[in-house]
Amino acid sequence: MTTPRSYLGQIQPGWWVLAAFLLVYPWFATNFFTYQIGGYTLILGMIALSLMVLAGYGGMVSLAQITVAGVAAYTLPIFGENSVGVLGLGWPEWVLYPFAILIAAVFSTLVGLISVRTEGIYTIMITLAIAVSFFFFARQNYALFNGFQGFSGVDAPSFWGIYWRDPMPFYYLCLACAAFFFCATVYGARSTFGLTLQAIRDNPRRMGALGYNVTAHRVYAFFLAGLIAGTAGVLLVLFNGRVSPGTIGVDIAIDILVIAVVGGLRHPIGPFLGALAFVLLENFAIDLIDRERFNTVIGMAFLLVVFFSPDGLIGLWQKAAAKMRRRDNHGAKPTVKSTGEETQADLA
């Protein structure tokens, strides 16, 4: 009994406030803010989280995460129901969703197998090549992917008397998935596997010499990231009710990278912050500025974030927090200053 309590006790009070806010958010937000801002932020955040897991802990920047999500998204109308009359095998939902996530994870593993032996920019290039070729394959193939048109009429499930595409249930569904993967990532980063992965990121040769199977760890990281992206892909197709090559285009792959980088790759909350900034800008930049130039605003905002804080929005927050702490400490006991900063860096 004492163990879980002490474990929960380690959590800073700020997180409880955030959790409480996210839980009551749909009670006062409009349907639009619950569904299109809230739901979509959590979905994009999850896809970016899968990239953050690979890039932040594994040092492998993959541009194919939206493709992994797309594999799960396409699995739903192909094996489930759609309204365009191509395939649609009509599998029941309780088989379909886990199956779609698993297919995506397997696909992600394959991406991993192909790309893990490369480093740095070559990983980016290989995964970009996979994303581009999958995009064009989906657009040209009519037998399986229904080409340019893609699939529409993918319905959300309704059980327990709830239709899960209604804004509030859908938001809570996304929130539950996002919270699960967020906590899993926080926990996983401190697990043996997580620490090994980070050690491999920092020095693969030394870890190899110590007897660790570097390739296997990296491929497994791809599998885990695939589970996250696959789940997000299922939610994405439920959110849109449709999937087409436009859903998994190269521009979206870049968007995911932007979200992860702007949010920050050092902590799992980063991708969600980045996704929130992205979704808000995407929706409201056009109201703030000349309609023809709103993309410039989006670009400038991201440029400024990255310029002033290479660690993204998390970095900005941590800088501000460190400054405040320094000011507080300055009055009381100036000698502790350095230790405060060190723990801050360790946490990140």
């Binding site: 700020g14 997180w15 406030v17 955030l18 806010f21 909350i269 929130l276 900034a277 929005l313 927050w317």
Partner: peptide, 13 residues
């Protein structure tokens, strides 16, 4: 870390 999204969302609201 948690103040930012909340403030953003509420101000936009």
């Amino acid at each position: 870390m948690f103040v930012k999204p909340k403030m953003l969302a509420t101000s936009v609201l």
